[in-house]
């Protein structure tokens, strides 16, 4: 198996996890989408130096992970794949922002390092929230929920197509790499020219495949509305879940639980 083929295996891990059954899986997809949206908003609303304030938020992914039966290994692997982007975004901060903002004993921590840390934390939080949403709901169900929540038709459609296209692209890619490998007899270097041709072909083929898949969808009555097999009903549990998440997030954002806990501890031990 080539690395690309293994990559496809990775891609559908989330969908396979979504087929499990757990209290989280049983929630209405809309409830999970709303909770995730609230969570994302909370995370990005923190100031850029605030690391302590962000830490309690890790409770949210931790709970979803445990109750939703998502293996930590899988989540970490996805995070690792996406991590370079976050690092790239944050890596210049320590160089640009050298003003010392916090002193810890003899150690001065510059604003750059703080904001770098906060970018990484925020990336970890947002990425795991979205990954967990997908792993406990499934991609198509998330798109359908977005649609039912009133997201524009075009947007949900784009999301759906993007997802299909990733599979098509990797599928065509793996076939081409295999065909190329079989006829290049492992001949050391692949020249730029060949790679260029492979890449060009890949795009054209994926585009053609995309058109044919779209035709097949239309042929089976697809009218742009993503629909799922099991249409869920909003229940009391869903309301409770959304309220619970909202309360927790509000507490973390406005209640300053770290300070409270800190002063409480100090009070107890005095």
């Amino acid at each position: 198996m080539t690395r690309i083929e293994a990559g496809i295996g990775d891609l559908d891990t989330l969908d396979r996890l979504a087929a499990q059954d757990s209290p989280i899986h049983r929630l209405d997809p809309r409830a999970k989408v709303i909770a995730t949206a609230l969570f994302l908003l909370t995370v990005v609303s923190f100031s850029k130096y605030d690391i302590a304030g962000l830490t309690p938020l890790f409770l949210y992914p931790a709970v979803l992970l445990t109750v939703g039966l998502v293996p930590v290994r899988v989540l970490l692997r996805y995070l690792l794949i996406a991590c370079p982007f976050a690092l790239l975004v944050g890596v210049f901060n320590p160089l640009l922002d050298r003003e010392i903002v916090v002193r810890w004993g003899g150690l001065g921590i510059s604003g750059g390092w703080l904001s770098f840390g906060s970018i990484v934390l925020r990336f970890l939080l947002t990425a795991s929230a979205v990954l967990l949403l997908l792993a406990c709901t499934g991609y198509v169900a998330v798109c359908a929920a977005l649609g039912r929540l009133g997201a524009p038709h075009l947007l949900t459609m784009q999301f759906l197509m993007l997802y299909r296209f990733i599979f098509i692209l990797t599928d065509e890619g793996s076939r081409m790499v295999r065909a190329h490998g079989l006829r290049s007899f492992g001949a050391g270097r692949t020249t730029i020219r060949v790679w260029g041709s492979l890449a060009g072909h890949l795009l054209l083929r994926a585009y053609d495949r995309g058109l044919r898949v779209h035709a097949a969808m239309l042929a089976r009555g697809f009218d742009g509305t993503p629909r799922t097999l099991r249409v869920s009903r909003w229940s009391l549990t869903d309301t409770a879940f959304v309220l619970g998440c909202g309360l927790f997030l509000a507490l973390v954002r406005f209640g300053d639980p770290v300070d409270r806990l800190g002063s409480w501890c100090v009070g107890v031990f005095r």
């Binding site: 559908d12 097949a216 969808m217 009555g221 697809f222 799922t228």
Partner: peptide
């Protein structure tokens, strides 16, 4: 390959009837 686009066989077969 052009015709099967849902995550599972079951959902794929259900795609037409649902639509």
């Amino acid at each position: 390959n052009d015709q099967l686009f849902m995550p599972t066989v079951e959902e794929d077969v259900a795609f037409g009837p649902i639509n």
